[in-house]
């Protein structure tokens, strides 16, 4: 790098200005000291990161576990009745909604995202790649609250007209918004995975007389399968944890969604709507923390699964 000699220069001049022997020694000591000091500083930084993770688990988990001193494990996980005003804390409906919403989102996002990744990595000429990738990054840059706002002002009136029902909010609206949000995540990681497939695989496929479609379907996508699955799971963690976009379009009624247009509520939206209004030392608050803890556990499991996929892949290679 061009800057480094200039940065060293003042120190060198300082050596000549003073008695060389002693000064050289102290400069050496200083370098050693800084070396050791910063080693500890970098170690401290990474430990601080782990400490934050510890804080998250401790503060959320501690409050979450208090839930079960007031209501039974069975009620929280298997009852569909969430009416905290009357002391009913059954989160099953909300949990099922969360899972349904995630599944619905992936159902819509994955085919489009993987198709787009194939287009970018395999088919498109170079200039088109250079256009598509930044455009997808634009999508990542838009804040989630803006997605929610667009869903509320553009998508929901549209759905209302389309379905003829008088309410547009519900799982379908939320899933459409989320699908758009996870699209770039899934697409970029799949794109990377597909680009990593060695060229010789493709050449072998072509040498056997395959068309490009056959090579993609039978060689490239299976070879990149692990990476694509990892991409889908990354999209899943985003979909499960997303709050503000969902809260604006899902209708926020704590009930099991019986149709795509029933106003419903998922873990994140339920927490954000209710947490500001509850007393800290109430079962209600504990139950909300339990929901957050559940979110944490789900995302940790998904992350560990991605690691497992990655390790298995590298063993094989």
């Amino acid at each position: 790098m061009s800057t480094s000699p200039q940065q060293l220069a003042p120190d060198d001049r300082a050596i000549f200005a003073k008695p060389p022997g002693k000064e050289r020694f102290s400069r050496y000591m200083r370098a050693r000291m800084a070396n050791r000091l910063f080693r500890y500083y970098f170690l401290f930084s990474i430990l601080a990161l782990c400490f934050v993770l510890g804080l998250v688990i401790f503060f959320i988990g501690k409050t979450a576990l208090l839930t079960f001193s007031n209501i039974s494990f069975k009620e929280f996980f298997f009852s569909f009745n969430w009416t905290p005003e009357e002391d009913h804390f059954g989160a099953a409906g909300i949990i099922v909604n969360t899972l349904t919403l995630t599944a619905l989102t992936l159902l819509m996002a994955v085919p489009v995202a993987v198709g787009l990744a194939v287009l970018i990595a395999e088919i498109a000429p170079k200039w088109l790649k250079n256009v598509m990738r930044p455009v997808l990054d634009l999508l990542v840059g838009i804040p989630s609250i803006v997605y929610g706002y667009l869903g509320l002002t553009v998508l929901i009136p549209f759905l209302r007209r389309l379905s003829g029902e008088n309410l547009g909010d519900g799982l379908l609206a939320a899933a459409l918004v989320l699908a758009l949000m996870v699209l770039p995540t899934i697409c970029r990681i799949s794109d990377e995975a597909i680009s990593m497939v060695p060229k010789k695989y493709r050449e072998a496929g072509y040498a056997l007389g395959s068309t490009r479609l056959q090579v993609m379907m039978r060689v490239v996508i299976p070879a990149a399968g692990r990476g694509i699955v990892a991409a889908i799971i990354m999209g899943m963690t985003r979909a499960i944890g997303e709050t503000m976009a969902v809260v604006m379009v899902i209708g926020n009624t704590a009930q099991l969604a019986k149709s795509l247009f029933t106003p419903a509520s998922v873990l994140t939206s339920n927490i954000v709507m209710q947490i500001s209004n509850v007393e800290f030392d109430s079962t209600w608050n504990y139950a909300l923390h339990m929901m957050a803890f559940l979110l944490l556990v789900i995302s940790f499991i998904l992350i560990l699964f991605i690691r497992y996929l990655g390790r298995k892949g590298s063993d094989k290679a």
């Binding site: 782990c50 993770l53 998250v56 994140t268």
Partner: peptide, 24 residues
């Protein structure tokens, strides 16, 4: 272990950080 910590932390939903801030 450190790497798992970093990855787990990056997967924590933002709402949970909000609750942490609220609690602290």
């Amino acid at each position: 272990v450190l790497r798992i910590c970093v990855e787990s932390l990056s997967s924590v939903p933002s709402i949970v950080f909000g609750m942490l801030g609220l609690a602290i």
